[in-house]
Design a protein around this nucleic acid. Structure first.
Lengths: 355, 355
DNA sequence: GGTGCTTTGTGAATCGATTCAACGATAAGC
DNA sequence: GCTTATCGTTGAATCGATTCACAAAGCACC
């Protein structure tokens, strides 16, 4: 059975519902309630301006017809939507899931909705989401940029779209941002490894075009420079995932025992988990005895891994919440208030880095 | 500096951009290119119908004005959007993150976008997202219902919104669904525990109003009934999270050693990870020696936990992908083809359940 | 009775993209 | 030279909610 829009036929009452589309409009509600469309709109948006009896008649009509506001029409008229765009590197990473959650909560308080996009650390996917968000006329964009194309985001802002960088430093640009000091985090991690007596550190991270990776590496370098005899090598993987971590781990496992590092700093906990799988489960390398390991983000699972994972903690959901907060300020155009929020990372020591 | 819409003043060129809103419309593009709005629309949607020179002039105008299609207007005219709604119990659960990812990928192939909502296993949040999706005129809804309010979803379908149940059995209703046999999964899990010689099994799960929980428990019961002397108790937690798992674990730790179970079946891996934290890291209960443990979902982290976690594997991203596939069929109204897809769960044995 | 004020409701204009009947121009066919 | 086709373009109508100037009705007060 298929209903057609203008099925001409013979006295049959054609339901007002078309396949996949419901079409009760405010006009029909108005007709049913015996009022004008303006009044129905007032009932929906400013009921206190409408006489009690009228409100009742209109709401009754709404219920009986099953009317649902058409948000597209509302948006079109209003010129803006009630949504905020959020682009993260990887929504499957519990860290970003928590960030998204924090953002969602704060947005809900402001009557807004978060549209979530996954860039997979790829510039084109990021662009695709930004385009989509623009077409949706989002109120603003929260973004953890995959590359370093800050000018692109500044153009966005110049075009009237508020932008807040998430977990990514603004570095002299005028963009608002919520960050955690990744250089300090990297330093904390490697200084800790060195304090345990380790000297041959390997940094496992993704593309240095990802600011977080570059900064954590930078911090690591500084820590190494402070200790004589300490060395730092880097192992670049193609994505910050468990799978890539395992691949990196297998590479390390395949090395001559003599060439192996005695400590590994992973750019995030997913990589660290993958490394752990390769070391502890697929080889006889002992963590932390042979190789000390530390991750980044302190996701929920970090404390439950085969060897509980040392990590650098970041306040994920606070980051999301604060990012929306800043965005709301940008939208209001409120001039006061800080436009750059910087949290400090925190070292969490567990078994994976201490003999 | 704040721009106002109709700032009347004196010859000043007010930018066509209003705070947070860009307003270059197709009409202005048309004027700039010296053609009609219809032609601009044709360039955007059916460029092959337009003379090459005209296309060029129009695209040049689009670029120079920075025109971005207003999706609200497009939707309003079209009567439908290009989006699909997805409501899951917990987006932070890697299982659902993978489902969402699969759905997103398949939707993208069809030129659609997935709007993701978190019900947190709460009916009101679920309803709020469904309302939102209706206002957005989504093409359809994928949902893992938090409660058992199938009639609500059938009304939705009757109102013309295609619905596909995700990871939730249709049970006689006419709704399309993609499921994994949770009864079989529960049976697999507990039969395995019993085969290891365990007899006192505790099921740790959430509210039985969540179908997955109820079914897995059901399967567990059947397995217990097949073995004489085997018992099954249940421990209900308020959410299927790591935190709640840890709380349940602490309860078990607090029991008299003599009263403790010798096996625990957790309704999902997050709970299992929490239990593991309580057992292995905060007490001297040995897993699997004292208590054998098995989870559900086989998330990425399961193999890297302190004691590698046995689990029941479900094809998460295939579930998401297939759900969108079914939804697209519903939208097309194609009558052929299966409307109920059922995957089979798979037992993955690791250390946590085998001495 | 006239004036001013409030309360309640009206209906046309508006937002921006899409669609489609209609039209002008050019080419093709006889 | 006249008809028929094809191609490219036009412009008005449309989608549905919101807004706002204005009207109608009710009331109070001098």
């Amino acid at each position: 059975m298929t209903w057609t829009r203008s099925g001409g036929a013979c006295g049959v009452v054609v339901p007002r519902m078309i396949r996949g589309t419901m079409s009760v409009s405010i006009k029909e509600v108005a007709a049913a309630a015996g009022v004008s469309v303006g009044t129905v709109s007032n009932v929906l948006n400013r009921p206190e301006k409408v006489a009690a009896g009228t409100v009742e008649r209109v709401t009754a009509a709404i219920d009986s017809l099953g009317f649902v506001r058409n948000d597209a029409a509302r948006q079109l008229r209003a010129g803006r939507s009630r949504s905020i765009g959020l682009v993260v590197l990887d929504a499957a990473n519990p860290f970003f899931a928590d960030v998204a959650r924090g953002a969602e909560d704060r947005a809900a308080e402001a009557g807004m909705v978060v549209l979530l996009g996954n860039s997979d650390e790829a510039g084109e996917r990021e662009d695709a989401y930004l385009d989509l968000f623009l077409e949706q006329r989002v109120n603003g964009v929260l973004i953890t940029p995959a590359g370093d194309d800050i000018p692109k985001l500044e153009r966005l802002r110049a075009a009237g779209v508020p932008v807040v960088l998430v977990d990514h430093d603004a570095r002299g640009s005028a963009l608002a941002s919520v960050t955690v000091d990744d250089i300090e985090g990297g330093h904390l991690a490697v200084a800790h490894l060195l304090a345990q007596g380790r000297r041959r550190v390997v940094f496992v991270g993704g593309s240095p075009s990802i600011r977080q990776v570059a900064d954590r590496l930078d911090g690591a370098r500084r820590a190494v420079q402070e200790v004589s005899g300490a060395t730092l090598e880097t192992l670049e993987v193609s994505a910050l995932t468990v799978l890539q971590g395992r691949a990196a781990g297998e590479q390390i496992v395949a090395m001559d025992a003599a060439d192996r590092p005695d400590a590994v700093f992973a750019a995030n906990d997913l990589l660290a988990v993958g490394l752990l799988q390769a070391f502890a489960l697929m080889s006889d390398i002992r963590v932390p005895h042979d190789i000390a390991l530390i991750g980044y983000d302190d996701i929920d699972f970090a404390s439950a891994t085969v060897v509980p994972l040392s990590s650098i903690r970041q306040p994920a959901s606070a980051i999301g919440r604060t990012a929306v907060e800043l965005l709301l300020r940008e939208i209001d155009g409120a001039d006061g208030g800080e436009r750059t929020i910087r949290y400090r990372p925190e070292l969490v020591v567990r078994t994976s880095s201490t003999v």
